[in-house]
Design a protein around this nucleic acid. Structure first.
Lengths: 175, 175
DNA sequence: GCAAATTAATGATTTATTCAAG
DNA sequence: CTTGAATAAATCATTAATTTGC
């Protein structure tokens, strides 16, 4: 299914140059735009030159409203976040062990051993800020999940801001 | 549906009459186990640490046969499939977040001019600064959306992992 | 009602990325 | 440039749901 088509409803570009109709807040990339940008990133592009930025922007304008600065920021953000993410993982790895997910032979092995000390990255609750800064409409993923992006330490209920569901079941208190 | 009575072993469905002592095909979670796992997921747990996995597994063993790896896999799969589900549904959606990007109102500025120096000198760091002020802690869940690994018609023709200079695929040849 | 046949879910593996360290 | 570590995407495989004919 072509998602790009329906996604076209982004923002009316007919509002005239620069005008973004109802909401002038910020760039809201279409799926197609994100796709191309991601492809570029994955192809190795990290810090596009001015020329590249302009060309990219020009091409992407076919899919919807976009400016050069949007492209620039997208790359800056995407690059930085990839790095940050990795960095956090490494830090958390202090006493790192890793997942051995080749379980073919795991029947012989103690799962405990392999899971022995895989440590998950701590994820503080900066959800909102991050998402707001992130120019991609990746919020989808998080919004419906009861508690979007927390992935750590269920046990510390105090740190949890449950939005629309009850605190953890008593059964989960062991965590 | 599972009556819940059989409890301890795999559901007595299928071959073998529920005997899981000798030969267990694959883990077949009881409804209680699924319930707890789902609660955890809904609470935000995405990639449990080894420690958490062990505890979860331990607790869930009360309801029936289970191993750590089952918990590990369950979260992997559930996470991926939820994401998949969301993605299917909301590919085209736009989620407007009303937060002004730190980029100042430079609609008036010439992108060309602006970026003319941004790229090569100081500007990029402004973005990073901001990012550091707002550590992207909740990034896990969101990142992938911006990084869809689907088989785009782009074909990943240029998927050589060039880190330095992008070979760029057909669609990117305009660069 | 009941199994055989078919389809839908989902557990388990493999593959391909990413960044960064060596 | 190569490799380590981690993980998400894609895929394989098996079980449960369900449909169907009797």
């Amino acid at each position: 299914m072509d998602d790009g088509m329906s996604g076209f409803c982004l923002k009316p570009r007919g509002s005239g140059g620069g005008g973004c109709g109802s909401k002038c807040g910020r760039w809201n990339p279409t799926t197609e735009q994100v796709r191309v940008l991601t492809d570029l990133f994955r192809s190795g592009l990290r810090t596009p030159s001015t020329d590249q930025i302009q060309k990219i922007s020009s091409q992407l304008s076919f899919y919807g409203k976009i400016e050069s600065k949007n492209v620039f920021y997208w790359f800056q953000n995407h690059k930085a976040r990839e790095r940050q993410k990795r960095r956090r993982v490494s830090v958390a790895d202090h006493h790192q062990q890793h997942h051995e997910i080749h379980y073919r032979e795991d029947h012989k092995l103690s799962s405990t051993k392999y899971f022995g000390e895989v440590n998950q990255v701590v994820e503080p609750e900066r959800v909102i800020e991050t998402l707001e800064l992130f120019p991609l409409n990746s919020f989808n993923e998080c919004k419906e999940l009861a508690n979007p992006c927390f992935s750590y330490n269920i046990g510390i209920a105090a740190n949890y801001q449950f939005r629309d569901h009850p605190p953890l079941d008593l059964r989960l208190s062991f965590l």
